[in-house]
């Protein structure tokens, strides 16, 4: 059953958001921009390396993912402010699993035991 979710999620979110299947989706907090497409995998971007033309430090041909995230957040009435929250470290063991399933069973929301919200 979960394999089906993974397949559908990979196909749909991959097409729309270039989803990288981190398993802990925060698209609504990042202006519907996948933060895992940032070459530094930042969960709290943008970094200080953004070029004057707004492109990525690592991949000069690519516009900064986090610039888009902040810009698009401004257009979002409901979740627009969520980008101001400090995002916890990613649980790397969830890579390749379904964020939908992880959301439903609470795994996605679980932060490291010592993490202060």
């Amino acid at each position: 059953m979960e394999r089906l979710f993974v397949r559908v999620e990979r196909l749909s979110k991959g097409l729309i958001f270039d989803c990288r299947m981190c398993g802990q989706c925060i698209l609504h907090s990042t202006g519907m921009t996948c933060p895992m497409t940032c070459p530094k995998n930042l969960r709290n971007g943008p970094c200080g390396g953004v070029r004057p033309d707004g492109h990525c430090e690592v991949v000069p041909a690519m516009p900064c993912v986090w610039m888009q995230a902040w810009e698009r957040s401004k257009q979002m009435s409901m979740y627009g402010k969520a980008i101001l929250q400090v995002q916890p470290p990613l649980n790397r063991s969830l890579q390749g699993t379904s964020a939908w399933v992880n959301d439903l069973n609470g795994v996605a929301q679980k932060t490291p035991a010592g993490w202060e919200q």
Binding site: K40, N44, P89, G114, W115
Partner: peptide, 23 residues
């Protein structure tokens, strides 16, 4: 890039102020 600067800051603050690792 396991952590970013902001998650690193919060992690190190936890070590200092709470006396605990991230775990």
């Amino acid at each position: 890039f396991d952590l970013d600067s902001i998650t690193l800051l919060r992690t190190l603050r936890t070590l200092r102020d709470k006396g605990r690792f991230l775990s």
